[in-house]
Design a protein around this nucleic acid. Sequence first.
RNA 1: GGCGACAUAGCCAAGUGGUAAGGCGGAGGUCUGCAAAACCUUUACCCCCGGUUCGAAUCCGGGUGUCGCCUCCA
Length: 467
Amino acid sequence: MGIRVYNTLTRRKEDFRPIEPGRVGIYVCGPTVWDYMHIGNARPIVFFDVVRRYLKYRGLDVKYVQNFTDVDDKIINRARGLGVDPMAMAEGYIKAYFEDAGALGVAPADVHPRASRHIEEIIAFIEDLIAKGYAYEVGGDVYFSAARDKAYGQLSGQSLEDLKAGARVEVDERKRAPEDFVLWKKQKPGEPAWPSPWGPGRPGWHIECSAMVRKHLGPTADIHGGGSDLVFPHHENEAAQSRAATGAPLANYWVHNAFLNIEGEKMSKSLGNFIVPREIMRSYRPEALRFFLLSAHYRSPLNFTEEQLKAADAALERLDNALANLKQWLVVSQREAMDDEERKLLGRLTAHRERFITAMDDDFNTADAISALFELTRDVHATLGPQASKELVKAVIDLYHELGDVLGLLRRDEQASLDDAVERLIAQRQEARRRRDWAESDRLRDELAAKGIILEDTPQGVRRKRK
RNA sequence: GGCGACAUAGCCAAGUGGUAAGGCGGAGGUCUGCAAAACCUUUACCCCCGGUUCGAAUCCGGGUGUCGCCUCCA
């Protein structure tokens, strides 16, 4: 059994076979940098980060590309409203993106191409399309003839006729057909622009991805991902362009995540119900948000509520506690080598790992994979204690880290060293406890709690953790 | 109107033919100076109606309901 991936194109789970054995090229549509990322944006960012981690974990050599759309109507309009330079504003939000993504445990992609830095490739791509008869220029704009592409509509499962029937598109007189879409936009006054064979202008939205995939991954990416709202028109159009230009499919596997809603409603600026991770992370650990985002399968809609975020935080804490317990046992244990009973658990560790892998192999079922971590946790607590052998405890800790790393959870940031004042309070409390002065002991514990330090008394000594 | 999802406990969520994983929350218990952590026990007529099958949460048909996309959108 290998990895299986649901392919939007075929609407089926398929065996995952990279073009080149052992190597995978992934392209994910990244943010249009016109504002801070909201938690809806965070879902694909976190999910595809896990896809990447998992494929690496399974021994594949992954090249992960995620673009920034930094030339776009929304950016230009916003910047104009604020009276700032659009490119500078985009730059600022790219910086903010890395802060937010980093906090969520998302590693930078191998390449983060930007539209503004691929103008040359984009122009070449458009020229190619014109030369092949798929695109036409009208007064400084260039359009793609959708009808020229026989497979147009394949990805979104809609025929050109269907699309026309439901069309709510404003008719643009310059287009030859309503379903045509723009590849190059003629400059309007005050807009950023680059010289081109058709005069100054800027790339349309869809073309950048086609050009970047070709440049960074070759004609065909193994996986092309993004939110399900991108299926049409964005990915449909990308696919059409690339087919036309290269004769090859843009991607073999199209992977789309479902939406994240807030309190049962779609998030949108007009409803005013969008939430930004940096706001959430003021009151919750970033890891709790990450856990929440992975707690449902990526193709299921996910409803964000504070209650669920709390539940995610509590669930994650259980895993954290398990790890903390293990680390403490490792310190206090007097025994190195495993006994026979422990060897049985060691065998079960393999089963737990396999359960995790089976879940992830099946179309990246993170929810099921997480449950494997909880089953591991229960097994460990039921079997081991402070008297466990160091050898086994180490093996268990390693497994937590191994599987946690795949999900980007259970990060091993060791406890920040506490300052002297805190250490003194802890020592004072220990002294009070020795005197059986419970009032003073509890007072000191409350005082520390107020500073965000939680103490737990265990038979092996006091343990501290940060709230 | 066209295309497509989804409906499993108080909440969330796996499970695609052999009579229901996991988490949060709740209840009871063990341990502990108290607390915490941990452990044990407990908490499901799988939206409705038909059909296929020895057997259906799972497949098929029909309802009902919720949602997404149909050229800004992760």
